[in-house]
Amino acid sequence: MAVLRDELIGLRSMDDMIKARQLVRDCAIFQGLSLVDQTKIVTAASELARNTLVHGGGGEMRLQALNDGPRRGVKVIFADRGPGIPNIELAMKDGYTTRGGLGLGLSGSKRLVNEFSIESQSGKGTTVSIVRWK
């Protein structure tokens, strides 16, 4: 699998989050995703970037354009060294929130992408990775 583009940006502020959304959009357009698929991955990225900021205390986003044979896709990885998620299964449920949100960020963004993985360790941080294929 070839990685055509590989970018890393910090997620420390709302401005970074907005920049992150634009970068994901650019990459999705570059990879030829449909408008609906672009919107899905940008929306998922927006949810996860906000989680990195709000729950993780900031972190970074890595963005990759993937070519797997004829398949083209966009991969986005969010990583923080925040408090971690003690119970991932619970956090992934629709409506589960510890901060008065809607609790749709994790469960909803999973529905918007083709691949979703999450790793988290209490006290060490959280990494969420998503891929949307064309």
Binding site: T39, K40, S107, G108, L112
Partner: peptide
Amino acid sequence: MRPAVAITLVELGL
């Protein structure tokens, strides 16, 4: 509301 936004909102669960 743009159609792509509407589709995405429903899938998000909102």
